[in-house]
Design a protein around this nucleic acid. Structure first.
Lengths: 201, 201
DNA sequence: GTCTATAAAGCGATAGAC
DNA sequence: GTCTATCGCTTTATAGAC
């Protein structure tokens, strides 16, 4: 069982990229074997539930990554502005300046929303909640913070759609730097966002 | 030929909703026949290029609708604020308060982006250009208007993703009313956009 | 012009050799 | 545990009756 879990976690990142590239319906087992190098037998041994279990596991691993890398710092980091800057830097890296899409957002738009509703909702709600907390600690009222968080998440998701539609690699970083200006107090947002690579949590 | 075009335009709206519901890969000919009531023969008679031609035609019809209903007023309406209010009202209706997704945005995120790149880009670029023109007429500098237009389109696309992810029907109208506050001068934005319950932030 | 029957290919998933 | 062969089933697309 421990061995199976090791194989799963080795396959998960690759499977994630396949789902990202082709969507849920467009991802075939043939494409998975091509991308992972593993045979059908290995894939079904690691994920007896087949394609659906693979997608569920991929979504869960994405959720875990965001939880530890972004949400947790947003909730716990003593300096709220630093946590927010950290979020923006992590988001820029994770989405590769807009050249990598958000799989959760893709599934949210499609028919897959119903199948993966709980995980999709959990991801967006977790982000909203964590960012709201950071904004409250940064001095905003709760209602203002909640609104601002909602706007920020929509801006990120929208910029990912827009950047891919326009095939403009400058668009997503531009959206993030505007976001920095809106989320951070003026005196603090003067530090450039993109260049500060992981100031830590 | 004229008859064929009539059949096409009768089928297009239904095919559009099927693509919206199931995505490009998820849309099968069987689902099309079920939704339209037409047999496979009729579908392939109207669209000899099959599924791809159908999707191209759907995207073209969406683009035409936005062009006449939204982009053209944004460019030509003498009162720029009125054109912008008109845009927001049309967007709210078209996307059914966020319960209907943007097919162009869905295709932009997926693998379909490459196949339909020109049309997808044309849709987003046309919107960006028309809204920028309206904002310039409303008194913004060209660079400010361009930035604001980019932000507005991202906010709309992002709010559609977010609304579906959270399954929250109040989210999209809320995003639109915030947008009204940002795009319109204060004195003019006091007029309600639709029946908006939120006066802004 | 619209239908049904059918073809050829690909799909997810399983079985069984090793 | 990993592979290949294979099973049903569905897919897109075509052919031909009407």
């Amino acid at each position: 069982m421990g061995e199976k879990a090791a194989v799963r976690s080795r396959l998960l990142p690759v499977l994630g990229e396949v789902f990202r590239s082709y969507g849920y319906e467009g991802t075939s087992v043939a494409r998975m074997t091509a991308a992972t190098g593993a045979g059908k037998g290995s894939l079904y041994n690691a994920f007896p539930g087949g394609k659906e279990e693979m997608a569920q596991a991929v979504l869960a691993s994405i959720d875990r990554w965001f939880e530890t890398a972004i949400f947790l710092p947003l909730r716990d980091e003593p300096s709220a502005p630093q946590a927010i800057r950290h979020m923006l830097a992590q988001v820029e890296t994770y989405f590769q300046s807009g050249q990598r899409i958000c799989l959760v957002g893709l599934f949210a738009l499609g028919d897959e929303r119903d199948r993966f509703a709980i995980r999709i909702r959990h991801y967006f709600a977790g982000w909203q909640s964590a960012l709201t907390q950071a904004l409250v600690r940064a001095g905003h009222s709760h209602t203002a913070a909640s609104t601002l968080a909602e706007e920020a998440i929509a801006s990120i998701q929208g910029a990912l759609v827009q950047a891919r539609a326009m095939q403009d690699t400058t668009l997503f970083p531009r959206a993030l730097s505007r976001l920095a200006a809106r989320l951070l107090p003026v005196s603090l947002s003067e530090q450039p966002v993109t260049t500060l690579s992981h100031k830590g949590e």
